[in-house]
Write a protein that binds this DNA or RNA. Structure first.
Length: 528
RNA sequence: GUCCUGGUAGCUCAGCUGGAUAGAGCACAGGAUUCCUAAUCCUGAGGCCGCGGGUUCGAAUCCCGCCUGGGACACCA
């Protein structure tokens, strides 16, 4: 809708126009403060300019009225236009909100170390990434979902070591000296038990077996993570192994050297990342010849940029923010444009239950499992709440609130609207498609307003995707449900003179709720 | 100390490419059901938009300084 209005206005003005929501919805559907900016140019009062423009726009069919008030120009869309659009949308549910963006995007997210099950912090990035991909794909972007598996390095060794030590202590009943850092949690003991079945207890007798345990456990953890993700309806297109990437390390290192990106100092190899904005240079190869974690990321991004994509989006935990500068510096050294890489940071999640705070730490072992929360409140509620706040702000929520069956639980509230719509149709003995060709005219103001709001979904999802602010979608669905409930309470549908028209209106509301939720990976309930 | 982020109603937050009286939800108080799902709705109260300065016809929004919460500052991932 907005696009139609913009192109109509552009036809007359030939200037980019800002369209916004009028302060008061009674004023109209859209408004523009364009007269204020033109005032400077033409040295004329914005009020006069607005009056003149309003007269010009008035003759356009898509507007019912165009009014200039105090320099603002307010537009009301015509019923014919709204009806036509609604009819099309209802008959083309799959296409509703679709667009034809033409960009190939590589979206990397989750990428949690395969050293344990996913915790609630990972879930946030997972859900945001998944929904970005769902919405982006709907808008026409070609999106590949990728998981970078850190299957090399110290953390994986620690995983094996942790299993080894637990096995030694709990299965062999030997005394164990615990290092400062190791993985805790029951799953380590479970793995140790399973390992003793697979390999025999002897596996815990000698430290030289640790790599074997590491390798075995890592694969198990990857499977576990995939299962955790599957349970919230998230699937990836690719899993990229860090270990595999190291095959290309000599080549990448060589390229870096040729481009003057690295130097040797203290028997180590350093990246001159300060040259491109990093705080200090970073070690990429230690004195014993082992590459650092950064090396893996450099190879990974080198390979990424060699692939055929227009844009790269990484979703990282906010604790990685210090990494941005060095990775971008490396990309630049490799001869690519780092602006094509965009990093979305997700902030911490604090979980409450009955007002009690939980502190999470994967390494400490007392972290909250994503799977536990899913079991507790369901994947739909988890998805909704994680999407309802901007990625880079702290998210705090109480799981008990999401179990409540009233309006304090947004997912419940929205589903209730959808179920109500279905129920009204059922009571009326009609199917959605029965009313699609009913002509909407002479609707009351409330109905017209609700119709307009229900047709806003396409611009909401586009805005949400472009700004990477998915809470715009959840906010929209909440307000659409609210407008619907309000209307429902004030206007009787069944048996009224307007029955079919209002049913069509309800059908449009249901459409947006259903499509909106589907893009969030949530199925709208038809009955409650 | 440096770098990110945030500071708006009791709580959680939206608004931030400057614009029309600062919004929503929750919580709180009152009210609505012979009638399509009251799992809902309506009404009410509640605000130096962290503080101070600046730019502007106009600042919650932009700039500078300060106060303050959180995070990051590895040869760990």
């Amino acid at each position: 809708m907005k696009k139609r209005v913009l192109s109509t206005l552009y036809k007359h003005l030939k200037k980019p126009i800002v369209l916004e929501k009028p302060k008061d919805k009674k004023l109209g559907h859209f408004a523009t403060p364009i007269a204020f900016s033109l005032a400077k140019e033409f040295k004329k009062s914005p009020v006069l300019i607005a009056d003149e423009l309003a007269k010009i726009f008035k003759d356009e069919d898509i507007f019912e009225s165009v009014q200039a008030i105090k320099g603002f120009i307010n537009f009301k869309l015509s019923e014919d236009f709204l009806d036509e659009y609604a009819t099309w949308a209802l008959k083309n549910e799959e296409k509703f909100g679709q667009d034809s963006k033409d960009e190939k995007i590589l979206l990397e997210f989750v990428s949690a170390n395969p050293t344990g099950p996913l915790h609630i912090g990972h879930a946030r990035g997972a859900i945001i990434g998944d929904v970005l991909s769902r919405i982006g794909t709907h808008l026409g972007y070609k999106i590949t979902k990728e998981y970078y598996v850190n299957d090399a390095g110290n953390q994986i060794y620690l995983l094996g070591l942790s299993i080894f030590l637990v096995g030694k202590e709990k299965i062999l009943k030997e005394d164990v000296k615990w290092p400062d850092e190791y993985y805790r949690g029951e799953y380590i003991l479970d793995l140790a038990k399973e390992a003793s079945e697979v390999f025999g207890k002897e596996i815990f007798t000698d430290k030289s077996f640790v790599p074997k345990l590491s390798d075995w456990a890592k694969d198990k953890m990857i499977e576990l993570i995939k299962k955790d993700l599957k349970n919230v309806d998230i699937e990836f297109d690719n899993f990229v192994s860090e270990k595999e990437l190291y095959k290309n390390w000599p080549k990448v290192l060589n390229t870096l050297e040729e481009n003057g990106a690295i130097y040797k100092k203290d028997d180590k190899i350093w990246l001159k990342s300060t040259k491109f904005g990093d705080e200090k240079d970073r070690v990429v190869v230690r004195e014993d010849g082992r590459p650092t974690y950064l090396a893996g990321d450099i190879i990974y991004h080198y390979e990424k940029f060699r692939r055929d994509y227009d844009r790269f989006i990484n979703i990282w935990g906010a604790d990685h923010h210090g990494y941005i500068a060095r990775v971008k510096a490396a990309i630049k050294f490799l001869g690519f444009n780092p602006d094509r890489l965009e990093i979305i940071l997700t902030q911490m999640v604090s979980l409450l239950k009955g007002g009690e705070p939980y502190k999470m730490s994967k390494r400490a072992g007392n972290f909250i499992l994503m799977s536990d929360v899913v079991e507790d409140i369901g994947k739909d509620a988890l998805r909704f709440i994680f999407l309802s706040k901007k990625a880079d702000t702290h998210l705090e929520f109480d799981v008990d609130l999401l179990k409540k069956e009233d309006s304090s639980n947004p997912i419940y509230y929205i589903n209730y609207a959808h179920a109500r719509i279905n129920s009204v149709f059922e009571k009326a003995g009609k199917k959605f498609e029965d009313v699609w060709d009913v002509k909407l005219k002479d609707l009351n103001e409330d109905a017209k307003n609700l119709l307009f709001i229900s047709l806003l979904l396409p611009e909401i999802i586009e805005d949400a995707f472009e700004k990477r602010e998915l809470q715009k979608v959840t906010d929209y669905l909440k307000s659409l449900a609210s407008e619907f409930h309000k209307f429902y309470n004030e206007h009787k549908v069944i048996g009224s003179n307007e029955e079919d028209k209002l049913l069509k209106l309800f059908s449009a509301v249901g459409l947006s709720i259903r499509v909106g939720l589907r893009l969030l990976g949530i199925e709208a309930k038809r009955r409650m």
